[in-house]
Simulated scan of single mutants.
Amino acid sequence: MRIHLLTFNCGKNEFRDNTALEELSKSVENSLPDDPPEIVAIAFQELTSIRTSFDYNLVHEILLDVNDAIVQRVSEHYQVTYHTLGLTHNGAITLSLLVLRPSRFYNIRTSYLPRGVAFSSLKGGVGIRVAYKSQVINNDDENDKELTFVSCHLNANEGEVNFNRRNQDLNKILSEMDFSDQYSVLKPDSHIFVLGDLNYRCSKVGEVENVSEIDELEKVKGDLDFTEAPIHFAQTYKYIIGTQDTFRTNRIPSWCDRILFLNYQEDLQPEYNSLPELTISDHKPVYLTITVPNTVPFIIYRKPTYYGSLVKTVSKATDTMFRFSMIKKTYLFLLTLAGLYYVTYG
């Protein structure tokens, strides 16, 4: 099965301008492989402004418009009809799955886990889990596949403290995101893909021969069941908006936007790259096309605890508080944010 994945931090764009939406859908088209993949997974972070992100219905409306434009573009590119199999979001973190043959998919599940300040939806992850029927005629499920996709936006900023918080965010998302099938993201016999603005930073500025020399994510890969295709593209953050290759000087250029998958032994024929021509955000989109084998590598699975349910309850209250404070006055929101940040992180 050939799968195409793309992640993009939209920089709170909202795509109310048709020009920006056209640029986005064109870039998605530019990332597509020659032959139509069975699945196209699209992950967005910061799809909307912070204020809009607390309004579920408004985010959903914006996401539908963006998704429809991408579905149309992908379908026209291949001259076949793609269908939206699943679409989910929490705050401004989104995930959608486009497929060629929707009748082959079943058991579609969604989940999310907030990890923002005071467990708000400002950071965290959303996921979609589906089963795929390889043999339709004889109803043989021996070669059926289960696939799990997770869109993440982890803790930001440089420094050891923020690095450790990113690791905590990722660990909680992988182990506590509950898909209501008694498993978290880490489920045996499920092909798992984690993509998004993981926010891992570089330790210095300048060109290097090996990404692992300066990249934070390389420090923790050994503790994960996931790997990544070799990186042969420029850092994806932080650019001056409107430019293809000019970084801002207040941040160390970093590969914040990543796509991870399990440690397969087979050759996945990966194509891993960025799209520098899209200049509407301070991030660049990253895409990956791979061939998924039948065999799923062994992983140490996790069953979620009560943590996820508790966090979701707290998150709804926090988001409501944030939304109310922003409606009243901006300074009240900032005061609330600062207070909850202190309570959360000390």
Rank of each mutant, 00 (worst) to 15 (best):
Asp225Gln: 06
Ser315Phe: 13
Lys329Leu: 13
Tyr301Ala: 05
Thr289Glu: 05
Thr243Cys: 09
Tyr301Lys: 08
Ser325Thr: 15
Leu310Pro: 14
Thr291Trp: 10
Ile231Gly: 01
Glu277Ser: 04
Tyr287Asn: 11
Tyr237Lys: 14
Pro304Phe: 05
Ile231Val: 11
Asn263Phe: 07
Leu288His: 01
Thr227Phe: 01
His232Asp: 07
Phe324Pro: 00
Arg248Asp: 09
Ser315Pro: 05
Ile231Asn: 07
Thr313Arg: 07
Glu228Tyr: 02
Leu268Trp: 12
Asp223Cys: 04
Ile327Met: 12
Thr330Glu: 04
Thr330Asp: 12
Val296Trp: 15
Asn273Gly: 02
Leu224Met: 15
Thr243Ile: 08
Glu218Gln: 04
Pro276Glu: 06
Lys316Phe: 01
His283Pro: 14
Leu332Asp: 04
Leu260Pro: 05
Asp267Lys: 12
Pro304Gln: 13
Thr243Tyr: 01
Leu288Glu: 08
Ser325Pro: 05
Thr236Asn: 02
Thr227His: 03
Thr227Cys: 03
Asp257Tyr: 06
Val314Asn: 00
Asp282Ser: 14
Asn250Ser: 09
Lys303Asp: 06
Lys219Thr: 15
Phe226His: 00
Ile231Pro: 03
Gly222Lys: 05
Tyr237Ile: 11
Ala234Met: 13
Val220Met: 08
Glu277Tyr: 13
Pro304Thr: 04
Leu262Glu: 05
Ile259Asp: 00
Thr318Leu: 06
Gln244Thr: 04
Lys221Val: 11
Leu310Arg: 15
Gln244Glu: 10
Ile290Trp: 02
Glu277Met: 11
Asn263His: 00
Asp225Thr: 06
Ile241Thr: 14
Asp225Tyr: 04
Leu275Phe: 12
Asn250Ile: 07
Ala234Glu: 15
Lys221Ala: 06
Lys219Asp: 14
Asp225Ala: 02
Asn294Ile: 15
Tyr307Pro: 01
Glu271Ala: 12
Glu218Ser: 01
Phe324His: 06
Tyr287Cys: 14
Val296Glu: 13
Gln244Trp: 12
Ile280Ala: 07
Tyr331His: 12
Arg302Ala: 11
